[in-house]
């Protein structure tokens, strides 16, 4: 049995770790709530944008020649990988990366092109590290954007993607991100960015109103498309942040619970060891007095 002093040292270190994980857990909890608020407050814009785009896509039908909607034979694809910058969040990053790898296989089958070239655009350090470590091709990287990304940063990502698409460097662009379902569940989700597939109109009351267009429907439509791509990146980015803190919250709660269990076990062992030592001492004293 280890000495009581050794056990005492271990108890102290386990309790220290527990305190740290507890602190990280509390911070994650409040940051998750703030990240969720950001997701909600950005929703009205994207919902309105999608409604408009759906209404207009029927008006602008026959204008499939817009650069961002052009469907070409797929030679090269790009995958935007949304991951957190930091760890201590359980298997979150690993799950996103695994989903991206599965997506590559799906794309090979869907496009019927086994030689499809895949390049990555890493948003977040965890994804970047994986792409570099596994020797894959990195088209661009965006890290340290923070919890509250500036729209300018998101626009830079969107520009990189649309420029590469228009220059025909890539023919397909997907995005994979951890969708925030609840604190306990974050689902890695793929999403097609380019070519843009305009959302279809949900059942709405009444027909599409007869708009007056200024300047004209096609111009407005082509102005809406890049914004649509931006929201398709912005919303998932915000959800990635929320998912990260949720996953961290759960991981740290488990760690704290484990630390507490371990500390309880060690305390028991410590008490037993102490008692054994006392008993031995008493026996020795009694034996000495008797002799």
């Amino acid at each position: 049995m280890p000495s009581t002093r050794e056990i005492r040292r271990r108890i102290r270190s386990v309790k220290n770790v527990g305190q740290i994980t507890k602190a990280v857990q509390m911070v994650a909890s409040s940051k998750m709530r703030r990240a969720q608020d950001r997701v909600y407050s950005s929703r009205p814009y994207s919902e309105q944008l999608i409604t408009l785009l759906a209404r207009l896509s029927s008006q602008a039908a026959g204008e499939e020649d817009l650069p961002l909607m052009r469907v070409r034979p797929a030679h090269n694809a790009a995958i935007v990988l949304l991951t957190p910058d930091r760890g201590l969040a359980g298997a979150l990053s690993a799950n996103v990366i695994r989903r991206a790898a599965a997506l590559v296989n799906e794309l090979h089958q869907e496009t019927g092109n086994p030689n499809l070239g895949v390049r990555y655009i890493a948003v977040g350090r965890k994804g970047r590290d994986w792409v570099v470590r596994s020797g894959q091709r990195l088209l661009a990287e965006f890290t340290q954007l923070g919890d509250q990304p500036r729209l300018g940063d998101i626009r830079a990502i969107a520009r990189t993607i649309t420029d590469a698409f228009i220059a025909e460097q890539v023919d397909l662009v997907y995005l994979v991100y951890p969708k925030f379902v609840s604190t306990l569940s974050q689902v890695p989700t793929p999403l097609q960015l380019l070519p843009v597939r305009p959302p279809s109109e949900a059942e709405e009351e009444g027909p599409t109103p007869q708009y007056i267009y200024e300047p004209d429907a096609v111009t407005i439509f082509s102005e809406l498309l890049p914004r649509y791509v931006e929201t398709l990146i912005y919303q998932p980015y915000l959800e990635t942040i929320a998912s990260f803190y949720a996953a961290q919250l759960v991981a740290m709660k488990n760690a704290t619970d484990n630390a507490n269990d371990l500390a309880a076990d060690l305390t028991l062992t410590y008490n037993k060891a102490r008692q054994a030592a006392i008993t031995t001492q008493i026996l020795e004293v009694v034996a000495g007095a008797g002799g």
Binding site: L52, L56, Y211, E214, P215
Partner: peptide, 19 residues
């Protein structure tokens, strides 16, 4: 500030979509 000029919108305006 419409793309084609300043716009004044009052109630019962016709459906409009502008930059």
């Amino acid at each position: 500030p419409g793309s084609e000029g300043q716009l004044g919108i009052l109630p019962r305006h016709a459906p409009l979509l502008t930059l």
